[in-house]
Amino acid sequence: MQLVAENLVIERGGRVIVSGVSLAVQSGEALLLTGANGAGKTTLLRALAGFLPLLSGAVRLEPADDDKPLAEAVHAIGHANAVKAHLTVKENLLFWARFLGGEAGAAARTDAALNAFALTELEEFPASYLSAGQKRRLGLARLVAAPRPIWLLDEPTVSLDAASTASLAAIVNAHTRGGGMVIAATHLPLGLERTREFRLQRGGKAA
């Protein structure tokens, strides 16, 4: 399986942010998206998730799965964590486990994800009690709570300490080892295996 983006041109607010970018990620591979502020990393990731209309070009999964649109094969982790302060840690994650991955086995997946991100101890607390790093981990825990082949991570390590960053790297490595695909925009060397760098220049061109 591979994710292919061809000749993407993306415009926002009358300005071309990404111009003519093509990329392909193979099953089992992690692509590190690098580039200066304003180079269009976030825009490119959001376009890959299907949130943005393309001025030209196409994004597709090969071989195509006719049952599901691409968006349903994708985890999009953005700057915001999609965490509700008034729900407990477990309620937050259980909702996404069900909503993104279906009812079957949702509780078990939630428990596994809480465990993977070291949140089990905190599961009964309202999310408003969490620190910024803990909230980020709860946001990232969606990745494990609902299995999907493509992970699009926008600055996943923001607010994470060294230990959490290391365990995130381990989780991402496990995902690619299992045949998953990862595209991550990040400034930090995460310690990921099987990575390739993809550099965006200012003006949204591939370097």
């Binding site: 299907g50 209309p53 393309l54 001025l55 030209s56 070009g57 196409a58 994004v59 597709r60 999964l61 195509a64 799965d65 006719d66 599901k68 649109p69 691409l70 968006a71 094969a73």
Partner: peptide, 12 residues
Amino acid sequence: MQSHSSNPDQRP
């Protein structure tokens, strides 16, 4: 259809 693509009619 498992893809998102631009509508060719709207290419400049």
